[in-house]
Amino acid sequence: MSSLARPAVAPEALLAVHDIEVIYDDAILAVAGVSLNVNKGAIVALLGANGAGKSTTLKAISGLVTADRARVSRGSIHFLGKDTAGVAPNQLARQGIVHVLEGRHVFSQLTVEENLRSGGFLRRLGRRELERDLERIYAWFPRLKTKRKTQAGLTSGGEQQMLAIGRALMTRPTLVLLDEPSMGLAPIIVEEIFEIVADLNRRESVSFLVAEQNINVALRHAHQGYVLDTGRIVLSGTAQELLQHGGLHEYYLGGKAGEAVPATRAE
């Protein structure tokens, strides 16, 4: 995957990650040469087993690596054609990248509505606009409205995941980095969440890069997919191709790394 030539950034490319390497504590190499693209209006799945480097890749894109004492030591990330190296996370959020962290990370002491509001501060909205955006989120996640005054830490896992997504949407993102939304949730809730993601993508043309271990549900809703194994992309293609690819599940057992033949190259 680590082609040396710089990829030509297609005009419709929203995000272009080129051959990045990420190191924690100047010692642990977590991602070693990942390249991937997200086109405007796409849902892209980033698949892989525990420790494959999915979360690290997302953190590199959102700039949150620095909060975990890690850094991108090689390669480049372009968002809307601009290099994001050295740009602070809050600036990236302002430019339209929002990261929904693994494990949801709602503000547990704040109410559901305060959580949502906090997502809107970035844009310094007036009261009226903020209320309108809140209603928009409640329309997507009606369940959150009934719990608006509840402390977020007291809501269910599914509600917290919806809240984390809703809070992220309050920033009016172009690209949402969604890290393992299915984690610890019942299949029916997972399905509901992915339906909403797909709907958001269709109706509001928000793009998504979704890290998942749940291959099936992710690929059923994604357009494109990449498979990560020990810090490297070992397979990529359209969701169709990947679903049909017999060996996909093998990567989750860690058996086939290295001898992989990409289904097709995404670029």
Partner: peptide
């Protein structure tokens, strides 16, 4: 106030606050 809710958000979960663009 917005500032106050941001303060509590940071106190609650710094990473999440960063992820939604709060300037730490």
């Amino acid at each position: 106030t917005h500032i106050g809710i941001s303060l509590r958000a940071v106190a609650d979960d710094t990473r999440a606050a960063l992820s939604i663009g709060i300037n730490l």
